[in-house]
Write a protein that binds this DNA or RNA. Structure first.
Lengths: 338, 338
DNA sequence: GGACCCATTGTTAACGTTCACAGTCTTCCC
DNA sequence: GGGAAGACTGTGAACGTTAACAATGGGTCC
C-alpha cells in the first residue's frame, strides 16, 4: 500500500500483458483501427480501464510528428476584442481535438512576433493563429513565411498567409451612413492608432461614406483605443462649433467621449449623435446606451480555426484563403435625427 | 535546389557529425553542462548555426518527463477579471521559460473541471493553475487531488491545494466602511451569483462592516455580474424608499445600476452613493466616474505562477501555500457625504 | 483444390532526445 | 614515478508510442 503512490504509470505494454495481446493491438484499439475483433477490443478496453491507463501524448507526438497543439499569438488579451477572439479560437480548437498554447505580447514589434513564432515552432505546434491587428505584425508575418501553417486574424492584405477578418471598411461605412441618414451635415471621427489595420479600415469606410454623399472629411481626431484618449478627443469636440455627429472607432473611446460631453453639458443625442464600434457588453448600459457596430468575434475565432485546420489537414493545396466576416449595425439611444 | 524544401530538419546526430563530436556532446552544449572544452563548444555552436538546428522539445520531454508546459483552466476569459489574471499568468510563465496551454470553460460544472484537468494531464503539463472562482470548481479541485502540482486562483479555503486570491472580505469591508464614513444610515448591496466565492466574500465583508457599526444588513439584491442584472437591481433600488448608499459587487453591474438610476432621475452621488468592485479600465469614465475597489489581477497571476513553480521545482515539500493579495480603495465621483 | 484476398494479430524498427556508465587524457601531489 | 582525482568525451540503452512489414487463418471463386 505504501508504495502504491510510487508505482509508475502503466504503459501500453502493461495493458497488452493484462489483455493478453501485443502492444500494437492496444495501439490499434486506441486509434480506432477498423481491423480489430470486437471481442479483442473489449478485452483491451477492460484492461485499460482496470489499470487506469492513459496514453502518453508526448511519445505519440514524437513518432507522428503531430502534437495536436495549435499556437496563438495575440496582442494584449486584456482588451475585449482580442480576448473574445482568442476565446472563440480556443473553443473551436478544443472542439476539433486540438490543444491551444498561447503567447500574449505586450508590444508588437517585429522581434516580438518573430520570437513568439519561433517559440511556438520549437514547441512543435501544428499550426499558428496570429491575432495581429497591427500593420507591423502583419508585415512581419508575411516576411517570415514560417514552416508551419499560419492564419492571420485581422491581418490586412494577405501576402502569403491566410487571413480572417471583419470588414472594417464596411463597418465604418455603416456607422457613417447611419449618421448621415439622420440628416447630419457631416460626421466627425475619433480614430484608433495609425499602426492598426482596424483603425485604418474604419477611417477608410468613414471617408468613403462621406465621399459618396459628396462631402469632404474633416480632420480625424487621434486616439489610442483607451477611454482616456476618447475623453480627451471629446473635450476637443465639445469646444468646437458645428459638431453634431461623431463616429468613434471603438466603444471604450466612445465612453470617454460621452463622459466629456456630459461634463461639458453637451447632450447626447439631443445636441450630438455618437456611434461606437465593437459592441462590448457594457455599451448597452452607457448613458445613453450606445449605438454601435457589432463585430462577431466568436465567428472570427471559429473561422480562423477552420481555415487553419484546412491548411493543416489538406497539406498539399496552399490555397491561401481570405475570409471576411461582415459587421452589423446596432441601433441604440446615442443617435438621433438632427 | 528543388529538394531543399523537402530536406528534413537536422537532428542532433547531424550536428554531431558536422562538428566531429558525439551526439552526447552536442546535448551537453545545449544543456550548458560545465564539462565541455570551450573550443569544442564553439565548434558545436558553429555547426548548430550552420545547419540551422533546433532542438526537438517533444523528444526531450519524452525522456525528461517534463514538458515545460503549464496548464491554465479558466472560466470565461472574456470577462475582465479572468482575462487579466490569465494574462498575468502567461507573462510570468513565459518569463520563467514555460509554455502555457489554456482551456476556457463556458460553464463550471464538476465534469467540466474534471475533463479540463484530465485533458491537460494527458498533454503532460508540469503544473496547472485553475482560475476557479466558483465554489463548485474549488470543491472539485480539492476532491480530485490530481497527480500534477496545482494552484487555485480565488479558490476558497484550501483543502489540499495551494491558493492565491484577493482578500474579497477586506474589499467588501473597505467599500462599506467608506460609505458609512460618509454618514449613510445603512448600505445596500447588489451581490454576485451565490456559487461564486468572490461574491460570498464581498457579502461577508459588507455584513461585517455593517455589524461593526452596530447595523443590521438589509436583504442583498441578486445579480449575475452582467450589466443587465445590475440594471434590474438598480430599478428595484430606485423604487425603494430610504436607499442612499449601494455597494455593487462588480463594476459592470454598477454600470447597470448607474444607468437605471439615471433613467429614473435618481442623481448619483447627490441622492445615492454607489461603490463598485474591480476597477475595470472603463470605470473612471462612467457617469459619474465610479468609486471602486481595485484588484491587482496582475499580481495574482504572477504570484500563482511563483507558488506553482515552487511546488514543481521543490518536489518534496508540499507546503500547501495560501497567498492573499490585498485590494485597494479607489475614490472617484460616485460617492458623496449624505 | 489451389490461388488469392482480407481480416486479424504480432514483430521489429524507428522517432530524437537524455541518462548512466565507461572510457581516455591531464594534472598534481607525495 | 605511481596513483588518484578530475576534466572531457563517447557508447549504448532507455523513454512510450506508431509505422512497416510479416505471419496466420479462414473464406471465396473458378
Amino acid at each position: 500500500m505504501g508504495s502504491s503512490q510510487t508505482r509508475r504509470m502503466p504503459v501500453m505494454a502493461d495493458v497488452a500483458r493484462e489483455a493478453g495481446v501485443s502492444h500494437q493491438t492496444v495501439s490499434r484499439v486506441l486509434n480506432e483501427h477498423p481491423n480489430v475483433r470486437s471481442e479483442t477490443r473489449t478485452r483491451v478496453l477492460e484492461a485499460i480501464d482496470k489499470l487506469g491507463y492513459r496514453r502518453n501524448l508526448v511519445a505519440r507526438a514524437l513518432v507522428t510528428k503531430h502534437s495536436r497543439t495549435l499556437g496563438v499569438v495575440s496582442f494584449d488579451t486584456t482588451l475585449y476584442g482580442p480576448a473574445s477572439t482568442v476565446y472563440g479560437i480556443e473553443q473551436a480548437a478544443r472542439a476539433a481535438g486540438y490543444f491551444v498554447s498561447i503567447v500574449s505580447l505586450k508590444s508588437i514589434d517585429r522581434d516580438g512576433v518573430r520570437d513568439a513564432l519561433d517559440y511556438l515552432a520549437d514547441q512543435g505546434v501544428d499550426g499558428i493563429v496570429v491575432v495581429a491587428p497591427q500593420r507591423s505584425a502583419a508585415q512581419t508575418l508575411a516576411d517570415l513565411a514560417p514552416g508551419v501553417p499560419t492564419v492571420a486574424v485581422e491581418g490586412g492584405e494577405a501576402g502569403d498567409v491566410s487571413v480572417v477578418c471583419v470588414d472594417q471598411v464596411e463597418g465604418g461605412r455603416l456607422a457613417t451612413e447611419h449618421l448621415l441618414s439622420l440628416g447630419h451635415e457631416t460626421v466627425w471621427h475619433v480614430r484608433g492608432p495609425s499602426d492598426w489595420l482596424e483603425a485604418e479600415g474604419r477611417v477608410a469606410g468613414w471617408r468613403a461614406a462621406l465621399a459618396q454623399a459628396g462631402l469632404g472629411a474633416p480632420e480625424p481626431l487621434a486616439g489610442d483605443w483607451s477611454p482616456r484618449s476618447g475623453y480627451e478627443a471629446g473635450r476637443s469636440l465639445a469646444s468646437m462649433a458645428g459638431v453634431s455627429a461623431v463616429f468613434v472607432a471603438n466603444d471604450q473611446m466612445a465612453l470617454g467621449v460621452l463622459r466629456a460631453f456630459s461634463e461639458q453639458g453637451v447632450k447626447v443625442p439631443d445636441q450630438v449623435s455618437v456611434v461606437g464600434f465593437d459592441d462590448i457588453p457594457e455599451s448597452e448600459f452607457f448613458s445613453p446606451p450606445l449605438t454601435t457596430i457589432r463585430q462577431d468575434f466568436d465567428a472570427v475565432g471559429r473561422n480562423s480555426i477552420e481555415v487553419l485546420l484546412r491548411q493543416i489537414e489538406g497539406e498539399g493545396s496552399h490555397a491561401c484563403e481570405r475570409l471576411v466576416v461582415p459587421p452589423s449595425f446596432v441601433a441604440r439611444a446615442s443617435t438621433a435625427r438632427v
